[in-house]
Nucleic acid binder design. Structure first.
Length: 114
DNA sequence: TGTATGACAACAA
DNA sequence: CTTGTTGCCATAC
């Protein structure tokens, strides 16, 4: 059975990433590294970005904007997307200071394994 | 099978 | 603070 490992099925990582992202509540953010960790692939932070691009395209409702880099900044992949992401986060109550988010205050902390 | 790419991260200077 | 380097690993070709 596929279950959570699924390293054999193509796109398994993308689905795991999507699952983790859906667990991040409004008003909180998670770093790419965090998502990789919770997705079961610590160190695959870069792949989270690629996975997010696909996952967001596959599921428009996915809160992809809640994922930021380890510096609390926006890692834009397309012109305009960065401003959109910041706007969406502000709408959820996230505070930006010097173009950065205070991760200590907004970082997502799962109370249970994802 | 091997190489290149990329919405990152950690570290050195 | 900034810039450059290295490690990382799923996908694409």
């Amino acid at each position: 059975m596929a279950s959570v490992d699924g390293a054999k099925e193509p796109g398994a990582f993308v689905r795991q990433v999507a699952r983790v992202v859906r667990a991040v509540p409004a008003g909180s953010v998670a770093t790419y590294g965090d998502v990789a960790l919770y997705a079961g692939r610590p160190g695959a932070a870069r792949q989270v970005g690629m996975a997010l691009r696909r996952a967001a395209h596959d599921e428009p409702d996915l809160p992809w904007h809640r994922i930021v880099n380890a510096q609390g900044g926006i890692s834009t992949y397309k012109v305009g997307a960065g401003e959109l992401q910041e706007a969406l986060l502000r709408r959820e109550g996230i505070v930006f200071r010097g173009g950065r988010i205070d991760l200590a205050a907004h970082r997502f902390r799962p109370e249970e394994p994802i």
